[in-house]
């Protein structure tokens, strides 16, 4: 158990430290890389809790896909740090005010937080050994809450179609490659063998 505690503190410490580095590092690319490190350690914490499916999904979805696109965009940006820091003193009061308001709201919410009485019973019940957590999650999402799952899917689909509609524009005069057309071309249709007579031209 000592080993487990040690690993927990390692993951937790690195996760928090890299979270701090995300907001404090000067180079945005370093920020994204620290964010990835934080995701990793969160995945490690999931594994420690026995939620291996969530850990893997976290790595596949967030690290493998979302953060890659993020890194892509950040690398392309040409950020002028001097310009970015210019109005720092001027905006400090209003920024600090917003920060304080958010902090107060968080404290208000956490202060009145209490668990429902059923939670204690559910949390205390033993984890069934014969069901893997992949199977258990599948049961919950695709059997018990299938309607909510489908609704979320439709919302995402509509959002995707919306994004495509917003960015789609038809430009005249664009030449596109049609692979089917190219494959269907036959020499008889496009090549004409001409017998050239001397001095006559084609």
């Amino acid at each position: 158990m000592a080993l487990q505690a040690l690993v927990f503190y390692l993951f937790a410490f690195v996760a928090v430290a890299s979270g701090v580095m995300v907001v404090t590092s000067r180079n945005p690319v370093h920020s994204v890389l620290f964010l990835i490190l934080a995701f990793f350690n969160a995945a490690g914490l999931f594994v420690l809790m026995g939620a291996e499916f969530l850990a893997m999904i976290l790595v596949v979805v967030y690290v493998g896909a979302v953060a890659v696109l993020f890194l892509f965009v950040v690398m392309m940006l040409d950020i002028n740090f001097v310009e970015l820091r210019q109005g720092f003193a001027r905006y400090l009061p209003i920024g600090g005010l917003i920060g304080l308001v958010l902090l107060a709201e968080l404290i208000l919410i956490v202060g009145v937080w209490s668990f429902a009485p059923e939670v204690a019973v559910v949390a205390a019940s033993p984890i069934p050994q014969d069901v893997t957590n992949t199977e258990a999650l599948g049961q919950v999402i695709y059997t018990h809450y299938v309607l909510a799952f489908q609704t979320a899917g439709i919302v995402l689909l509509v959002a995707m179609i919306g994004a495509i509609v917003l960015t789609l524009r038809q430009r005249p005069g664009v030449k596109r490659q049609s692979i089917d057309k190219q494959n269907l071309r036959r020499p008889e249709d496009v090549v004409e063998v001409v017998k050239v007579t001397r001095g006559g031209g084609v």
Binding site: I36, E52, M56, I57, V60, V63, V68
Partner: peptide, 19 residues
């Protein structure tokens, strides 16, 4: 238990070395 997902996760990380 999640061997395939682990492989998928590791292979999706390969892109980081490149970027």
């Amino acid at each position: 238990n999640v061997g395939v997902l682990y492989l998928f996760a590791v292979s999706s990380l390969g892109v980081y070395g490149v970027i």
